[in-house]
Design a binder for these strands. Sequence first.
RNA 1: GUGGUUGUAGCUCAGUUGGUUAGAGCGUCGGUUUGUGGUACCGAAAGUCGUGGGUUCGAGCCCCAUCUUCCACCCCA
Length: 454
Amino acid sequence: MKPSIPKGTRDFSPTEVANRTYIMNTIKKAFETFGFQPIETPSFENASTLMGKYGEEGDRLIFKILNSGDYLAKADENVLTAKNSLKLTSQISEKALKYDLTVPFARYVVQHQNEITFPFKRYQVQPVWRADRPQKGRFREFYQCDADVVGSKSLWQEVEFIQLYDKVFSQLGLLKTSIKINNRKILSGIAEVIGAQDKLIDFTVALDKLDKIGKEKVEIEMLAKGISEEAIKKVQPLFSFDGSNEENLDALASMLQSSEEGTKGVEELRFVINSVTELGLKSARLEVDVTLARGLNYYTGAIFEVSAPKGVKMGSIGGGGRYDDLTGIFGLKDVSGVGISFGLDRIYLVLEELGLFKSVDNPKPKVLFINFGKEEALYCMKAIAHLRAKDIKSELFPDAAKMKKQMNYANKRKIEFVVLVGSQEIENNQFTLKNMISGEQYSLNINELIASLN
RNA sequence: GUGGUUGUAGCUCAGUUGGUUAGAGCGUCGGUUUGUGGUACCGAAAGUCGUGGGUUCGAGCCCCAUCUUCCACCCCA
């Protein structure tokens, strides 16, 4: 049998793990710099916790876990014979792999509300699973790195999250990312102004395609979805949004002046943008993007999305937003939350494409002791114990293999030094230390050996 | 979930209109070289041609199914 792994999953080599750890540590360190503290939640949740939180599409993409035991025998006979997958699923599966980190976090907050001091700033770096069809940068198992604040409605949080994005991407050397920002209230306002509140989703989905298929086709799609010609006329400015953030905000403000909610959205967006502009960004660019409509299922205020620098073909590498009532689903009202997510796996691909990994090294010993035989090995192991006590990474080649093989091993792992010990060295209580880069070698006693490797 | 695409040695890939025993480079292992590596030269191992059916005297090549890869929708990190 040929071994294989499931579609959309991957093995990671030592180099890949080193690179991933580097990204993760950069993100975690930034989270902590901004005052977030880590939590973890289980890989799988009760299915009822997750189902219905991500829309119909989301439900389809949740990995369900089969109940233990003879689950079919316990299922309703009628549902079984009717072959109704949807109904049957809820009977034979009570658990599901987590789909994102936000909903389990909301569950966590509600469940631990009495232990938590609000505002609660948490970060979480864990894998999530989606039964999606894989593509480049799209996997069925991938890591999200989330930071959220719950228990504060302050827009300063939005400002800080933009700074956090900027900090992480700057540190990773990923310059000129674009952070797109929108506000759900603006989208609602637009729908209100055109008299199509019920068509909000159709409208935004069509609008989202503007830069892909062009104005004419977007209008055709909107008409097809039952949005009136008059309504489309009212939002014409949306189709030619290429001015500065300031100009775009002004255009939105006048378009939405009759909508209370829309006007509020513009004000919020203006505050965030003005504050960020005042405080300055290192390398990212902040852009108002009214076509941005992610996570419409629970976002209520700001919506974020980060795309890679121009020229890199990759979907969004981060996203987030404000959700005013996510904990409400689990019974805790009036707790506003806002957060962002970093897509580790996509960031990896982008950094790789741009060649930004070269400084990351695999873990390796500083010195390799060549194995000449039993007696020599023992002599070496005593020295190694001393080196390790000083936290000098060292190892003995496990077998008394040919010199060439042992030296090759050192070369392959890019080990800087080797120590050669034969009968002569043992006799003189010495070690021959060889620098594998320069080829120089010295005869040293144990203290000199420690000193030159420390 | 819809439509398309890909699969040949550990890796990257050749392989003619269907025709005997499927090749190369890199890597691996061994040797030249039993206490001195990277270089060089010589040699070896390694493939049920993704898998299962079918067509054919004959299939890596044609047909069907399935898995995988990537792409476009959809959605998203």
